[in-house]
Amino acid sequence: MNPLELADAQPGPAFTVTFDGRTIEALPGQTVAAALWAAGVTAWRSTRGAGRPRGVFCGIGMCFDCLVTVNDLPNQRACLVPVRPGDTIRTQEGTGHDG
């Protein structure tokens, strides 16, 4: 059993996006965070102080731990932003605005 089967989901065709240059598959309707989780990725930010990895924490847009750079726009909350075909998702370093 997986959640898609459990809910009898019939999403549209999968598409691809890239995460740090690697191609991953995503489903229409997923958020960036859901697509990354489904691809086995749990960290996509490195903190600006200690450089530690972070990913989803609260899952509802409150904690801002899941900030990520999507199509060169930094500080997007992966748990809110829907994934779109061809998205370029990058691990966000520091403030997201550094070079």
């Binding site: 997986n2 959640p3 898609l4 459990l6 809910a7 989901a9 309707g29 997923q30 958020t31 965070a33 859901a34 989780w37 489904a38 749990t42 960290a43 530690r52 990895p53 972070r54 990913g55 989803v56 924490f57 609260c58 899952g59 509802i60 904690c63 748990c79």
Partner: peptide, 24 residues
Amino acid sequence: WTLPGVVTAGGAQAMLKGGLVLPG
């Protein structure tokens, strides 16, 4: 508790209900 893979209980539920995805 800041390690990736540690999520809030409600967050795991939200990702499941909204994104049909499991954290691990």
